[in-house]
């Protein structure tokens, strides 16, 4: 209509307002949309996390069953179990790191674009935090469940199942899910922070 529709406070010389943070509800909405729309990619990333945790949780769950061995053999079996758990944790760490790092790095350009549109660094970090949290929680829980079920089913069929096993499982569930979420966040947040802190021109140049 008029040739000067821009009657906004920033036109006052020498003054610029401060950008406010993205509202949580909006950030949540964007996160859910982002996970849903890249469902294929999200599932692959989630599978990477779930697989690692499933391995870890199955080793841990197997350890919950009292060994039939006695004496020195039992001690050796206990050590073997511990060593397996550590190995499983390492495998799971590398697996999750790999899939999360990839999924954040391939979105540097998107981060640069969002900053051009007015995103604050903390908006970017919040979006990636929420996404990693969602993925980490669901995938780790699923992974734990899968690993646990496998061990339970095996023991039911081999006749070694005891109801007391269930009691120890709650702790194992919390532990596995917690470890999964922690590793997921550890993998996702540092690159997201790094990309958010880059000048947008640099983030936009990254050609993935």
């Amino acid at each position: 209509m008029s040739d000067q529709p821009i009657e906004q406070p920033q036109n006052v010389p020498g003054k610029v307002q401060k950008q406010v943070s993205l509202r949580f509800a909006k950030a949540w909405e964007i996160t859910i949309k982002s996970i849903k729309i890249r469902l294929g990619r999200s599932l692959i990333t989630a599978a990477g996390i779930a697989l690692g945790i499933a391995f870890y949780s199955s080793v841990r769950a197997a350890g919950l069953f009292p060994s039939t061995a006695i004496g020195p053999e039992a001690i050796a079996a206990g050590h073997r179990q511990q060593w397996l758990a550590v190995m499983a944790l390492m495998v799971c760490f590398v697996g999750i790191m790999n899939s999360m790092l990839m999924s954040v790095t391939e979105r540097f350009k998107e981060i640069g674009t969002m900053k051009c549109l007015g995103a604050l660094n903390r908006d970017i970090v919040m979006l990636f935090f929420l996404e990693a949290m969602m993925m980490g929680l669901t995938a780790s829980f699923t992974g734990w469940l899968v690993g646990w079920l496998i061990v339970v089913v095996i023991h039911i069929f081999t006749g070694g199942f005891q109801p007391s096993f269930i009691a120890g499982s709650v702790m194992e569930m919390l532990l596995s899910t917690g470890i999964g979420v922690a590793i997921t966040l550890m993998a996702a947040i540092p690159p997201a922070v790094r990309a958010a802190q880059m000048p947008p021109a640099i983030a936009l140049r990254s050609s993935i």
Partner: peptide, 13 residues
């Protein structure tokens, strides 16, 4: 400008 003011500029101006 600080980061929030710069973001405002990129967003609105």
């Amino acid at each position: 400008l600080d980061a929030a003011e710069l973001a405002y500029l990129r967003c609105h101006t």
